[in-house]
């Protein structure tokens, strides 16, 4: 799995780093950043997918 955030779309809703704090973090403006592009286990992968389907801006891309 490879996780990316489209910074041009992200508006800092914060859903990703709240749902999957092991995969996503935030910058000083509160916009989402990817901490771990390849989540190490099933749980982290599941949470990354959950973050993706909750992002209001459709800013998270996941390559399986």
């Amino acid at each position: 799995m490879k996780v990316t955030i489209d910074a041009a779309r992200c508006q800092g809703h914060g859903r990703c780093f709240n749902l999957a704090p092991d995969v996503f973090g935030f910058d000083e403006l509160g916009n989402g950043v990817v901490l771990v592009a390849s989540p190490p286990d099933d749980r982290a992968e599941r949470l990354a997918r959950l973050a993706q389907v909750n992002c209001p801006e459709h800013a998270i891309d996941i390559e399986e």
Binding site: Q11, G12, H13, G14, V53, N54, P56
Partner: peptide, 23 residues
């Protein structure tokens, strides 16, 4: 509800700046 792409804080460039605080 796990999948919940709601718009309570708006969408786009005017996303509520206080959303972290509100939550």
């Amino acid at each position: 509800r796990l999948e919940n792409r709601h718009l309570a804080f708006g969408l786009g460039i005017h996303r509520c700046a206080g959303s972290n605080l509100a939550r």
